[in-house]
Amino acid sequence: MGISAWVWFAVAAVAAVGGAALLARDRAVRTSRNRERRRWAALRGWQFTETDNVLPTQWDGGALAYYGGGIARDVVAGSTFTADGRRRVYVYDLDNGGRVSAVIVAVQCRRKHEVVVELWLPSVPFEQEHMPELLGPVGQRYAFVSDLAKARALITPDLVDASEEVGPDVMVAWIEDGWVLAAAPVNANPSRLERLLRSLGEVADVVDPFEDDEPSDGGTAQLPPGRHGQ
């Protein structure tokens, strides 16, 4: 005996209602996050942009490689002080197909580094064949690097100490080009992001001390193109 048409209709109706409820919830979360991020930017005197398609393409490693890139949403751009001086920062939601995968936090260095260093929590189910070369444990994390020799010169006890302050809720922190970046959880609020910016600023101070002579690449690291102000 077959299932009557009204049963299929009821199942379809329930699914539609459930889908609409999920969309409404996601939209509410998105709106709340947008307002919160916008208020935070205004409080700090930073700039806010709802969407930026270019910004995530400036980096290839860490969470960008893990999630396969995406769109930057609710972007905050500004600068903050570290022990060695003022550095430019970006904070944005990494959106993959309408779903936020992580909050990307980036702090700029003066110089570009010739090696990518990714510091992953051991609990992350990463696919090793898609990662840079495994260097080994660095504090509580595992380091995957693009060049073993150059990475060993960069990973000092001071860097290990600074990276330990990033926090156990950050799946990966990494150094790429002229930036120090991290992937915070999607529910990270401005208070948590402020602390993470300070921690990344300490890492930047270690790998890019201002008291050094001229940057190794002969100039200041270039900012990603975009609509963000100075």
Results as ranks from 00 to 15, higher is better:
G218M: 03
P56A: 04
D93W: 07
S191G: 08
E127F: 01
M171F: 11
R152V: 02
A106V: 10
D213Y: 06
R33L: 12
G69T: 07
A20M: 13
D212S: 14
L159Y: 01
A183F: 06
G136E: 04
P157W: 00
R30G: 07
L181R: 02
A77L: 03
A221H: 13
Q47A: 15
W120G: 06
R198C: 03
G218N: 04
Y67T: 00
V206Y: 01
V7W: 13
M131V: 00
P215R: 02
P224W: 07
A106K: 03
R39K: 08
T82V: 11
W8Q: 11
E50D: 15
V166F: 06
A162D: 04
V160E: 11
V100L: 05
S79I: 05
L23G: 14
D217S: 08
G136N: 07
G218D: 02
A183E: 06
S199D: 05
P137F: 04
S79P: 08
E133S: 14
G226P: 02
R27M: 12
I175R: 05
E164D: 14
A12F: 07
A42N: 05
V145D: 01
A204E: 04
G218V: 00
G45C: 07
F81D: 14
A77Y: 10
D52H: 05
G70K: 00
V117P: 06
C109S: 15
A13R: 04
G139Y: 03
G78C: 09
R99I: 06
V14S: 13
P224S: 05
W59M: 10
S123H: 03
R198A: 12
A5L: 12
G219T: 00
R38D: 11
V180M: 10
V107F: 09
R44F: 06
A65F: 03
E211T: 07
F9I: 15
A13E: 10
V29T: 14
P56M: 03
G201M: 03
A42K: 10
P224A: 12
V117S: 08
A106T: 05
R33I: 05
V180Y: 12
I104V: 15
G70I: 01
L135W: 05
V145K: 00
S199G: 07
W46C: 08
A153N: 04
D158F: 00
A65Q: 13
T31G: 11
L64R: 09
A28P: 08
T57Q: 14
G2W: 10
S163Y: 01
R198N: 07
R30W: 12
V172G: 09
W6Q: 12
V7G: 11
L148Q: 08
D177F: 09
R25G: 15
G226A: 03
P168A: 10
L159F: 09
R25T: 14
P215Y: 02
A41P: 03
I104L: 15
G78F: 08
L119V: 06
R86T: 14
H130Q: 11
R99E: 13
Q47L: 04
